[in-house]
Design a protein around this nucleic acid. Structure first.
Length: 353
DNA sequence: TAGACGTGGGC
DNA sequence: TGCCCAAGTCT
C-alpha cells in the first residue's frame, strides 16, 4: 500500500510542474467566478464549458448582476449546456447569496453545501479554491484516480463504494497546508484524472504514482474503476409542431421540472392525430407537412422526434394554460431552446431563406 | 436510495 | 455506429 503521508506532497509537486495553470477560472480567489465554473463543470467537460463561462461572465460580471437577471435570460445563456436544473439552481443560489449573505459567498463547506446546486464535492472545490479550506473533492476524476492507485473495487456510483472513497479522500488531505498548497492539491486531483489518469488510455509513464499504483502494477487500468452496470435504454416517441407565422415560430415554455425544464420548446403531442388537434387549437392550417425525423439520446432514454410543419392561418381557438410566444427565427438565441430543437430550427431557417 | 437529469467527445 | 461517460445534485 502506498504510504498515505506521501500522497499529497507528491501530488502537489506534480501539479506545480505538470498541472493546468491557465484555465479561465484559475488564478483567482473570486468565489463568484470559481462557483460559476464549478457548477458549469458538473458532468461537463472543460472544452464544452469554456465558451459558456466566457459568455456568462461577460453578461453577469457579479453575483448581484446574475441575481437581478430574469431567469429566462439565464436559461437562454445556459441553453445547450444541459442539466438545466443547474441553471435554475444557479439563479436561485445567486439570489440567496445576494440577498441573504450580503453578496458574499459563505466560506465553509457546510454553509456552501446548503446553497442550491452545491453538493458536497462542489462545496469542497469552492471552499478550497476560494478560501483555502482543507476539504476534499470527490468527482469523477478523483474516483478514477483513487480506484486505480489504491485498487478500490466496485462501481463508484454505488453508495457503499462512494462512501469508502470519501473516507479515503479525506484521509489523503495534506495537513497544515498553506493556501497555495491547498489549491495545488485540489487542482492536482482534477488534473491528474483529466490529463494522465484518463479513462481510455492512461499515461502511466508520466504518472507520479506509477510505482505504487495497484492498477499499473497489476495491469488493471481497464478494469478500474469498475464500470457502471448496463441498463436497457427505453425509447420514447413524440410529435413536435413547428408552427410558422411569417419568419416567426411558436414556442411554449416547458414546465419547471422534468426534461428540459424551464426551456422554450415546440408544442408536443403523443401521436399524429393529437398533434393535428394541437395545431388547430393554436390557429394552424391543415394539413401539416412532414419534416425529417430526428433522434436524440439522453442518459436514461432515447427520444424519437417526428416534426410537423404548419402555418398559422387564424387566431388560436382557445387560450392554452402554457406560456406561449412567437419567436423570430433570426432571434431564436434569445430563447433557451433544447439542443435538438435548436438544430431542427437552424436547419429550417437555412431552408426557408 | 436509486433514478432523473443533457449534451457532446472519444474510441 | 453505438457505447460509455464527463469538475454531481436533487429527490
Amino acid at each position: 500500500m502506498l504510504a498515505l503521508t506521501d500522497f499529497s506532497s507528491r501530488l502537489i509537486a506534480w501539479q506545480r510542474i505538470h498541472g493546468r495553470h491557465d484555465l479561465p477560472w484559475q488564478n483567482t480567489r473570486d468565489a463568484y467566478r470559481i462557483w460559476l465554473s464549478e457548477i458549469m463543470l458538473q458532468q461537463t467537460q472543460v472544452s464544452t464549458v469554456i465558451p459558456y463561462y466566457a459568455r456568462f461572465l461577460d453578461r453577469f460580471p457579479t453575483v448581484t448582476a446574475l441575481a437581478d437577471a430574469p431567469i429566462d435570460d439565464v436559461m437562454a445563456l445556459w441553453a445547450g449546456l444541459g442539466y438545466y436544473s443547474r441553471a435554475r439552481n444557479l439563479h436561485r443560489c445567486a439570489q440567496v447569496v445576494a440577498h441573504e449573505h450580503g453578496g458574499a459567498f459563505p466560506q465553509t463547506v457546510d454553509e456552501l453545501a446548503e446553497l442550491p446546486g452545491i453538493g458536497r464535492s462542489t462545496a469542497a472545490a469552492i471552499a478550497s479554491f476560494a478560501f483555502a479550506a482543507r476539504a476534499t473533492i470527490l468527482d469523477g476524476n478523483v474516483k478514477r484516480v483513487l480506484a486505480r492507485v489504491f485498487g478500490v473495487a466496485g462501481f463508484p456510483g454505488e453508495k457503499k463504494v462512494e462512501s469508502a472513497m470519501w473516507k479515503l479522500a479525506e484521509s489523503l488531505l495534506p495537513d497544515a497546508a498553506n493556501k497555495d498548497e491547498v489549491t495545488a492539491y485540489t487542482q492536482g486531483l482534477m488534473d491528474l484524472g483529466a490529463t494522465l489518469c484518463v479513462r481510455g488510455r492512461p499515461d502511466c509513464a508520466r504518472c507520479p504514482f506509477a510505482p505504487d499504483c495497484v492498477a499499473n502494477i497489476e495491469g488493471r487500468q481497464r478494469e478500474l474503476p469498475a464500470a457502471r452496470p448496463k441498463k436497457a435504454v427505453p425509447t420514447r416517441k413524440t410529435w413536435m409542431l413547428v408552427l410558422t407565422d411569417g419568419d416567426s415560430i411558436l414556442l411554449q415554455k416547458r414546465p419547471p421540472t422534468g426534461i428540459w425544464g424551464g426551456l422554450w420548446s415546440l408544442p408536443e403531442a403523443a401521436d399524429e392525430g393529437a398533434l393535428a388537434e394541437v395545431a388547430l387549437n393554436l390557429g394552424g392550417a391543415e394539413p401539416l407537412q412532414r419534416l425529417a425525423p430526428l433522434s436524440h439520446t439522453f442518459t436514461h432514454f432515447k427520444l424519437d422526434i417526428e416534426p410537423r410543419l404548419g402555418e398559422a392561418r387564424g387566431p388560436a381557438r382557445e387560450a392554452t394554460d402554457t406560456e406561449t410566444v412567437w419567436a423570430p427565427l433570426a432571434r431564436i438565441d434569445a430563447y433557451g431552446v433544447p439542443a435538438p430543437v435548436r438544430k431542427l430550427l437552424d436547419a429550417l431557417a437555412g431552408s426557408l431563406i
